[in-house]
Write a protein that binds this DNA or RNA. Structure first.
Lengths: 213, 213
DNA sequence: TAAACAATACGTGTTTTTACGTAATTTTCG
DNA sequence: CGAAAATTACGTAAAAACACGTATTGTTTA
């Protein structure tokens, strides 16, 4: 059962939205708030999976709220509901950690689909926003392309052995090198991919197609 | 009517076993195979309830067969027939998802009883094996592995946060739970996926499509 | 309503990984 | 050949993860 939070300062709209969402199978509104402040307060005691967030709320505004939520509750997926449809606004909220965007004048039946996709895929954007998304993805990919990271053969060997769940000691034995050397390789990989731990190296390699499992 | 499959490489024994089983009320042999390969082939077109599986088959051996069957046809209950009676062997097959064990030198009249009990209770073991069974059921994570592994919502949250390279402490803070609880979730995940470390959990989830990055 | 599952939490360790630095050998290649 | 890159290795210490156990509290569900 998906636990939905709903934040919108228009009570009538909010209440009907509650009814709509509750009519969908597999999800339920567990939290309602009129503004960001109330929302943050209630989140302290209520666990939610997905937040439907209005962008025109009075009081603490939607941008600020989105930022706070994604900082304090990164596990909550945020679907922004708004009347706005301008490229810049969209980009702006996306940078705040929002995983979905839904304009209020879109067909309400699509909302269920949006929530489910957001939950399954981790993101949802309306069809017509594809180009914007692509823009953003491209621009962030360009940053990565400017600093080409490659793994050496030895490093790849080590990645593979780590995927087989060998620890540093065992890898050293298999490769006939000191465990310290294995550590050094691991550290180099973390440094060059900017990871805090080796899981970051693995995901980096997967995302950059150095690796497939 | 119980649909029985029978796999044994000794044709004489197999044929007489067919007669024996067919003489029992309420059950019928619907499939015969000399080895694991043939068995798997025939299972594609024949539905069976219970499989009587010999452990000394040539070709693909019984262990491997049991593993394949329980993986692809978890609904089929497997009763192993064997001459072996050693604790280790018994444990080994049980970990493969076998629900019953029957030594060939036991009274044949007991076979009907074994099949019926296996069907009704979901398991059957000869009296003297009870302690071994209890041992394994209590202690073995491998038993769990033979059942379909699923991640709970909370576990998925934690997987996602770990992918974001948060450490246990940080995850605890973000989710408002104790770091110890996070550790517990991680350990449960490692247990249920049979991993030595969390990288194993990640790859398991990726391979089983719980997760995409 | 009992049983199973999920989520929570702690104790008491041990093992492994990570951090940060330095530096000596190969190996590769312009 | 000589510079750059890759591989090797170690010291010291702190942080994090892992192992294995127990236990309470809700929630689902057969």
């Amino acid at each position: 059962m998906l636990r939905i939070a709903l934040s919108d300062d228009h009570q009538l709209f909010r209440k009907s939205l509650v009814l709509l969402v509750n009519s969908f199978e597999g999800m339920q509104v567990v939290l309602e708030a009129a503004d960001g402040k109330e929302l943050l307060e209630k989140l302290k005691t209520t666990r939610v999976d997905i937040l439907l967030l209005d962008l025109q709320m009075s009081g603490m505004d939607g941008f600020e709220t989105a930022l706070e939520i994604s900082k304090h509750y990164p596990e909550i997926k945020i679907l922004v509901l708004t009347l706005l449809n301008e490229k810049d606004t969209i980009k702006k909220v996306m940078k705040l950690g929002v995983q979905g965007y839904f304009t209020k004048n879109t067909n309400p039946n699509e909302l269920k689909n949006a929530i489910l996709k957001l939950n399954d895929q981790g993101f949802y954007f309306e069809e017509n926003l594809t180009s914007i998304v692509q823009d953003i993805i491209d621009s962030s990919a360009a940053v990565k392309r400017s600093q080409p990271v490659t793994f050496t053969e030895r490093e790849m060997q080590i990645v593979h052995l780590i995927l087989k769940e060998y620890n540093g000691n065992e890898i050293g034995k298999r490769l006939n090198i000191s465990p310290r050397t294995v550590e050094k390789h691991k550290r180099n990989l973390m440094d060059k991919t900017g990871s805090k731990n080796f899981i970051g190296v693995i995901t980096y390699a997967l995302l950059h197609d150095f690796l497939s499992i």
